[in-house]
Design a protein around this nucleic acid. Sequence first.
DNA 1: CGTCACGTTGACGGGAGTCAAAAGTTGTGG
DNA 2: CCACAACTTTTGACTCCCGTCAACGTGACG
Lengths: 230, 230
Amino acid sequence: MRMKILAQVPLFAGLSELALDGIDHRMVSLSYAEGDRLYSAGDPANYLYVVAAGQVKTLQPALNGNDSILDILAPGEFLGGLTVLGRPVYGETAMALVTTCALRIGTDAFREVLLEYPEIALRALDDVTALLQEARSDTSQRATSTVAQRVATTLLQLAGKFGQHGGSGDGTLIQLPLSRADLAAMTGSTPESVSRVMSQLRKDGVVDTGRRWTSILDHNKLTAIAAAEE
Amino acid sequence: MRMKILAQVPLFAGLSELALDGIDHRMVSLSYAEGDRLYSAGDPANYLYVVAAGQVKTLQPALNGNDSILDILAPGEFLGGLTVLGRPVYGETAMALVTTCALRIGTDAFREVLLEYPEIALRALDDVTALLQEARSDTSQRATSTVAQRVATTLLQLAGKFGQHGGSGDGTLIQLPLSRADLAAMTGSTPESVSRVMSQLRKDGVVDTGRRWTSILDHNKLTAIAAAEE
DNA sequence: CGTCACGTTGACGGGAGTCAAAAGTTGTGG
DNA sequence: CCACAACTTTTGACTCCCGTCAACGTGACG
């Protein structure tokens, strides 16, 4: 049953049954309630996690208390492996956004796997590189764009990753319990500013929001806002 | 002669003579004048570079023309290897900051090396991870800090990487031809704002600047400014 | 039904981006 | 050696985005 999940993890795609079985035997499955922490920044980084079901947000703690949300992870993605050699502590905090199930493997065991299957190491390298490029484009965007643009961009990214089409409404539904504070932490802003932007977007019929969901009604207009304010 | 350089590259540290020789044979050495580009964003990413002498800056192009400077690379560091599988183009532009000498290896050949020596792949993974953490802390800093704080932080980072102590003056000398526009691109600001900050710092006796250098006179005060404005 | 967290909206102030012009530097050619 | 042009840096004035503080409304849960 866990084998099926592992086979769907991009990082392990294309591995033989035998290899997957070997990895599977070294992993433990765990479950978390909403708000539970998989690990906290500063904890010894002894494990690598793979999201099996649910969503996990990773938080970058800041001195001022203005934590940033680095990423929201979907099933199949891994986290906690991003520790620098010689600094064996987590740099971020990982928290379950909803009821979540995850698999866990010891970092030493994972390192063995990487040495045994170099192609996985290369794929991991690609994955981290992709994260790096994302982080870097984020950085340059924060410097130049307005809050409205950043919120729009973030919503589009979320829609691309978690969006569900069709159903009753005709928009793209993002079913995540994201508070204004969460969106603020994702865009490098404040809850108040995000609220203003969202109110405006709702008034213009671009999005609609509810308790634990957000829906994008006018994808084109949102893209236009993300690209250049009017 | 190039072997000596290669042996000093952290990525290749601890490799056998034989292995280094094998890598060396697949590399070509090149030299660049100030302002020359090693490669541009969008070019096919066919090569990985190692800085042998000089300094190289990497630029992230932005839509508005407000390019960001991602990093300034010292001898021994590598660049151009950060390409995602399936997107074989450079995401950044690399430009020589001064007269620079670099070694070059084809990405395919490098991939072979990584598969042959998995420990290099793991070290590369650590390197990229370090870059990722750096990029992420940068992102959260840009969101919260003032320009003065960001400039101070950047100067401290540069001092740690390129600073030379002692000599005639009693400060830390950073010998890099960084224009106000460069510093602006590094801090996510504008040349004017950076100029204002630098003027203030010079007036307060914290730094001194010249044609192609910057000197940090009061390290403590600069650290204080970076941490929290007064 | 009371409490509390969250979301919304308003008013205010400050940091910094933009525009503009002056002052200093570099490099070139006569 | 000097003069001129092109660029960089600096400084000033203005504007505005948005972060902060505060008040109010709303839904959730015990």
